[in-house]
Amino acid sequence: MMRIRRIDLSDARLFWDVQKQLDIESKFMMLEPDERRFDFSRTIGHISRFDFLIGADVEGKFVGFLSAKRGNANRIRNTAYVVVGIIEEFQHQGIGAQFFAELDRWAKEKEIKRLELTVMINNYAAIALFQKQGFTIEGVRRESMCVDGEFIDEFYMSKILD
């Protein structure tokens, strides 16, 4: 049974585990497989810095997460930057849609006007998910990521909430 729930400090190892698995199996996440080292206090620090952090929990193991971080300055407090990752085996099962439904509820409650994210232009499944959730492409971050020695562009995407 799968459930979507908030990730808190007691979930530090589970959260790190899902991030590490995503680093290993996906070339679409920020870190390469050997970059992430487990450091309990650092992981707790990461968790505590997010304004919103949820995971998809299957029998006590996270299989994906969505995080959002609001802008710190007053002029961008109404904007949140979003990161999402779902383990390959659990993709295309509606987890992403559930994540974004929870994100929308939180954003409305917190009076967030703008959600934003970046995605590699060759991550077709993620782009389709984001567009289905109301995100639009605003622009291109040219050669912003280097994956396997090749520079890749990213789309900058946003969703404006009413």
Rank of each mutant, 00 (worst) to 15 (best):
V147A: 08
W16L: 05
R36F: 02
Y124R: 11
M29L: 14
M29F: 10
F90E: 08
V147L: 04
L103T: 05
D23S: 13
N123V: 04
I87T: 11
V119K: 02
Y124F: 13
R70E: 09
Q21N: 12
R36T: 06
Q21V: 10
V84K: 01
R105H: 14
E138Q: 12
M157A: 08
R5N: 05
A68V: 06
R49V: 05
Y156R: 13
A56L: 01
R114Q: 10
A97D: 13
N123C: 08
M1S: 10
K108W: 06
L9G: 13
Q91T: 11
I24G: 03
G139R: 09
K61P: 05
D162H: 12
E116I: 07
A80E: 02
Y81W: 15
R3I: 11
I127C: 06
E32K: 14
D23C: 11
Q91K: 10
E102I: 01
S41E: 14
L9H: 09
Q98T: 09
I121H: 10
S26V: 06
K27V: 10
M1W: 04
M30Q: 12
F130I: 06
R3F: 08
E138W: 10
R114H: 09
A126V: 08
E32D: 15
F155P: 04
G149W: 05
R77T: 04
Y81T: 14
G149T: 04
E143F: 11
M2W: 04
G149L: 03
S144D: 11
S26P: 00
M2G: 06
I47N: 03
Q21D: 11
L66G: 01
I54K: 01
V147W: 05
V140N: 09
R6H: 15
Q93K: 12
Q131H: 07
F155R: 01
